[in-house]
Each structure stands twice: as structure tokens, then as C-alpha cells.
């Protein structure tokens, strides 16, 4: 270490003795500074290496002239070195900016693509869920239709009306036949599937017999059906029953076939909103 240092000093002394006055030229100092700062700029090495090389060569010419005390020969290469160093830095800065923008362009494209993809995805999801909802709606109404078909219910002003024939009852009696069960099971299933719907059970008779007997019979038959539904698990609050006697005949009472049609129990099914079925006004 000491030996190296001593050698360095002796060389410096030798040079100093050769160069009687150390060169201090403002143009050369300026060129050195500019070349040095260009060298220190990593962008210059990356984007303007050739210009930096040219600047260093000019500086070397100026340094050589300085060593030879050729003051007149320093100015031109020093000026060229300084300006070329500036040129290198300007070019490098511009190219670095260009490169940054070019690289960012890729990122920008990616962000825009992502945004578009998200938009498409969300539109697709919305369309999918809308379709699913539509499908469910269609399925639901198909199911309902199938159930109503099974019950043989008919749409009327008061709601869907399911007619249970008098075959459920023995003549003059209000107890349900054992064979009525299967008919009622379908209705129970429907009411279980649609827990919001209410029903009104309406009883009717033919015109044979007194008014009060028929009213009483029709009411008891309607009550019997209501009770049968309740015992099968349907909430009693959902069911009302009403006897209408011989009123609202659906066929003639002048022959046995018509009278059989008039002896009936109708189940009026209310809407999905759970509204009560309106009672029938007497004509």
C-alpha cells in the first residue's frame, strides 16, 4: 500500500516537474464535468453510448493538448467534448422517456383489456342470472300448470276453481267417502307447495228438498272437506268454508244428470299474494 502510494506520488511529481504549471483551462474543466456527468448517467450508457464515446475521444484530444501545453489546441476539442456530452444526455433522456411510455403502453393496454373483460364478464353474469330467473319463472309456471292440470282446476273470476263431484259423499250425507282421499291428496300437495295461497270451500246442492235442508247440507259438506284438509296438515286459517244450498246451479235441475252436476263441492284457490278468496254474493 505504502509502496503504491509512494510510486503514485513520485509519478505525480515527475509529471508535475515536466508540466511546470498545472493546466487550468475553463473550457477543459467544463468539458470534463459534462463528460463525467454523462458517464454517471445510466441512461446514457443504455441509449447514447456512441455519443458518449465521441465525447470522451474529444476530451482525450483536449487532455493531450493540455499535457503538451498546446493551449491553442485545447478549446476546440474541449468545446466539442462538452457539447457532445450534452447531446448524449439529451438523447438518452428522450429515449428513456420514450422507452418508459412504450413500456407503460403495454400496461395501459392490459388495464384497458382488464376493464373491458370485467365489463363483458359482468354483462355475461347479468345475462346469465336474468336467464336463470326467467328459466325458474318458466319452470315454476310449468309446475303450477301441471299441478292445476292434475287437479283439473279451472280459472274463474274468483280464482282457480276445482270442482269435487258429489261422488265424495253418500246421498244426503256429509261424510267423505274413503275414495275421496286421493282427490284431496292432490289438493293437499298443491296447498303444501304454495303455502301463501288461501282457499274457500264452497258447498252446493240440487234443488231437491227444502231450502234450509240444502243450505245446511251444503255447509256441512264444505265443512267436511275443510276438516279433511286441516287433518292433512293444512293450516286452518288458510281455509274457509261456505254452504250455498241450491244457488249457483251449474246445470239444470229438471233431470237426474243435471242434478248430479249441481251436487258438488268447489275449492276456490286464491292468488299467490295470499289474499282471501272473495265470498260469493247471492244473486
Amino acid at each position: 500500500m505504502n509502496i503504491k502510494l509512494l510510486t503514485g506520488i513520485s509519478v505525480a511529481l515527475a509529471m508535475a516537474s515536466c508540466a511546470s504549471t498545472p493546466t487550468s483551462n475553463p473550457a477543459l474543466d467544463n468539458a470534463r464535468n459534462l463528460v463525467r456527468s454523462a458517464e454517471a448517467d445510466p441512461h446514457v450508457a443504455m441509449y447514447a453510448a456512441l455519443d458518449l464515446e465521441a465525447a470522451k475521444k474529444e476530451l482525450q484530444v483536449a487532455e493531450t493538448a493540455a499535457i503538451h501545453h498546446d493551449e491553442a489546441a485545447i478549446a476546440q476539442p474541449a468545446y466539442l467534448a462538452a457539447q457532445t456530452a450534452r447531446l448524449a444526455q439529451l438523447k438518452a433522456t428522450a429515449k428513456a422517456d420514450d422507452a418508459r411510455v412504450a413500456a407503460g403502453q403495454t400496461e395501459r393496454d392490459k388495464i384497458q383489456l382488464n376493464a373491458r373483460t370485467r365489463e363483458v364478464d359482468s354483462a355475461t353474469r347479468e345475462a346469465d342470472s336474468a336467464k336463470m330467473a326467467r328459466d325458474q319463472e318458466v319452470q315454476k309456471s310449468a309446475n303450477l300448470q301441471a299441478e292445476l292440470d292434475a287437479l283439473k282446476a279451472k280459472p274463474t273470476d274468483r280464482g282457480l276453481v276445482l270442482t269435487l263431484g258429489d261422488v265424495l259423499f253418500d246421498s244426503g250425507r256429509a261424510e267423505l267417502n274413503p275414495g275421496a282421499s286421493r282427490n284431496l291428496d292432490q289438493l293437499v300437495q298443491f296447498l303444501t307447495d304454495h303455502p301463501a295461497r288461501r282457499v274457500e270451500i264452497d258447498g252446493y246442492t240440487d234443488s231437491v228438498g227444502t231450502e234450509s235442508f240444502n243450505l245446511n247440507l251444503s255447509q256441512r259438506r264444505a265443512d267436511a272437506v275443510r276438516y279433511a284438509l286441516i287433518t292433512r296438515g293444512i293450516d286452518s286459517s288458510r281455509i274457509v268454508s261456505q254452504g250455498y244450498g241450491k244457488d249457483f246451479a251449474v246445470a239444470t235441475n229438471s233431470d237426474s244428470g243435471g242434478r248430479q252436476l249441481n251436487r258438488r263441492v268447489e275449492v276456490v284457490i286464491g292468488g299467490e299474494n295470499g289474499a282471501a278468496v272473495a265470498a260469493r254474493g247471492r244473486d
Binding site: K91, T93, A94, D97, D98, R100, V101
Partner: peptide, 9 residues
């Protein structure tokens, strides 16, 4: 050129 690049950046 450098000013243009800077502006663009």
C-alpha cells in the same frame, strides 16, 4: 426532441 419526449411522458 427531449422536450417532446418529456411532454409525451
Amino acid at each position: 426532441q427531449q422536450q417532446r419526449a418529456k411532454k409525451a411522458a
